[in-house]
Structure formats: structure tokens, C-alpha cells
């Protein structure tokens, strides 16, 4: 568990850090004000925020409001640590769906028990798409394909393996087990997954991946399935086809570019256009 403690008082942060690290074994990062806390939260993934209310510059309430309006941070559990006892304040906090409220002064055992009882789970990695769009299949980076259809698996292997190794799984459960054993950057999810559905599989993959980004590609038949895949947490989709040329053009998006042109395009993405403009 990665926890951010935001409190303007250094001694309070020190006490909380000691309790969380020693009693619960959690990783703790400290922040002395709300502005810095928001910056820290945007930079790395935390599973819990312990937040003081009365702080200069940006109060705990203001931090909460920013978090709840944030697409990527609105789900982070927040536990308030304050000496504030007024009912109207507590009511206001309830409206912000805080996960808990710890009253100061801090009592070590009480704090450890309360936090342990929250039964928090490490948050699934939901980093920005930029994190995963650089993940590709390549000769040195295998991917996993899960599909219950033998014909499609064989077709996929025959077409995809010239770009890099592909490990196949007949069911979602088997794919997740393979991923746990040896994680890959890209996982292709097809059809006939067995008892585990796409949504569960994506969740299990991300849990297994932890901080490591993984690009989950759903192989879809139509536009409706494409929308559904996004809703279920997949990062990308590719059209399901057994026409080699169509497959290749779809699949190339997930293959690491190689060769001199790819290197040039990485260095100077508009090089070809600049060449065209020089004559045209």
C-alpha cells in the first residue's frame, strides 16, 4: 500500500508515518500542504490519502473537491485526520464520500486498527494512455493471446509471430496465470474465454501487474463490441479478421517499429513530409 500523508504539521506527519510504516508495513510519502499533495498525487499512484483539514494555501476541503472532480483521482480513498469535531463539518465530509475520519490527538493503536479495518486494496493502475501506447510486441518482448477458438489462435500465431513471440492461452484464467508467472507488455483478448469474463480478466491482469503498465487489446467484431471493450477497461481494440492483409494492418499498431526508417521517424517524425514539401 502506498500512502500519502498530507498535513502541514511535521510532528503529525512523523507520528502518522511511524504508525503506518511500523504497524501496517505501508509505504509512506509525506506532503506539507495541499498544493504539493495534489502534485504528488498526479505524479504517482497512491492507494490512500490521509488528509488534514486545516492547512494554509489549500485546505483539506479544497483538496477533496479537486480530487472528486478529477477523472483519474476521484476514486482514491481519503481518510481525514483532524481535531475538528463540529457536526456540520463531519456532515460536509460525508458528502465528499471520505473513507474514514481519524480524530486528533492520534493514538497509534486506534489509528492502525481503523486503517486496517478499511480493507483497502492497492489501486489498479490506470495511468495515462501515454504510459501504455509505447508498449509493443517485439522480438524481445512477447505478448499473450487468449482465445478459445483454435482456428483463430493458429491464424493469429502464424501471422503475428514474424513480428515477435506470442504465448497463447485457451482461457482467460490460463492467460492470467501465465501473466502472473511471466508478465508481458501486451495482452490480446479474443473470444470464448471460459468461465472468466473480459471485465474480470482485465481486472486480474491489472492487479497482477501492480505498478507495471500493461496494454490490454480486445479483439472485436464490430463497433458495438469496440465500445463495450472500452467500458470493460481495455486500452485498445483490433478488428477480428482472418484475412492476412487486414490482420497485418491492424496488428502493426501493436508492433514495435524496427529498422532504420522507424529510428528516423522516432527522431524526426515529420521527416518525410519535410522532404515532400522541399519539392512540391
Amino acid at each position: 500500500m502506498n500512502v500519502l500523508i498530507c498535513d502541514d504539521d511535521a510532528s503529525t506527519r512523523f507520528v502518522l508515518r511511524r504508525i503506518l510504516a511500523q504497524n501496517l508495513g505501508w509505504n509512506v510519502v509525506e506532503s506539507g500542504d495541499g498544493v504539493d499533495a495534489l502534485a504528488q498525487l498526479s505524479r504517482r499512484r497512491f492507494d490512500l490519502l490521509l488528509l488534514d483539514l486545516e492547512m494554509p494555501a489549500l485546505s483539506g476541503f479544497e483538496v477533496l473537491e479537486v480530487l472528486r472532480e478529477s477523472e483519474s483521482l476521484r476514486e482514491i480513498p481519503v481518510v481525514i485526520v483532524s481535531q475538528e469535531r463540529r457536526p456540520e463539518v463531519i456532515m460536509r465530509l460525508r458528502e465528499q464520500h471520505v473513507a474514514g475520519y481519524l480524530l486528533k490527538p492520534i493514538h497509534a493503536e486506534q489509528v492502525a486498527d481503523r486503517l486496517a479495518n478499511l480493507r483497502l486494496k492497492p489501486r489498479v493502475h490506470t495511468g495515462p494512455r501515454g504510459d501504455i501506447s509505447n508498449l509493443h510486441l517485439s522480438r524481445g518482448a512477447p505478448s499473450i493471446l487468449v482465445d478459445g477458438n483454435l482456428d483463430y489462435r493458429q491464424f493469429f500465431l502464424a501471422e503475428a509471430e514474424r513480428f515477435g513471440p506470442v504465448r497463447v492461452a485457451e482461457s482467460a484464467a490460463s492467460a492470467v496465470a501465465q501473466f502472473r508467472k511471466s508478465p508481458v507488455d501486451v495482452v490480446f483478448i479474443g473470444t470464448q474465454l471460459g468461465v472468466m469474463n473480459v471485465e474480470t480478466m482485465v481486472r486480474k491482469l491489472r492487479e497482477a501487474a501492480g505498478d507495471r503498465p500493461v496494454r490490454v487489446v480486445c479483439i472485436v467484431n464490430d463497433a458495438k463490441a469496440k465500445e463495450e471493450a472500452a467500458r470493460l477497461g481495455c486500452d485498445d481494440t483490433m478488428a477480428r479478421t482472418m484475412v492476412p492483409s487486414v490482420f497485418t494492418s491492424e496488428f502493426r499498431r501493436f508492433v514495435k517499429p524496427s529498422g532504420p526508417v522507424a529510428v528516423l521517424q522516432q527522431m524526426l517524425p515529420e521527416f518525410k513530409n519535410a522532404a515532400m514539401r522541399s519539392i512540391d
Binding site: 527522431m267 524526426l268 519535410a274 522541399s278
Partner: peptide, 16 residues
């Protein structure tokens, strides 16, 4: 030469 001047300018604009 004209083509290459344009390409070098493009490279330079991109810190290359």
C-alpha cells in the same frame, strides 16, 4: 541541395 537544405532546417528545428 535545395532538398537537403530543407531537411537540415527541419532537423535543426527539432534539435537534431
Amino acid at each position: 541541395s535545395r532538398v537537403v537544405r530543407r531537411l537540415r532546417a527541419h532537423a535543426s528545428e527539432n534539435g537534431c
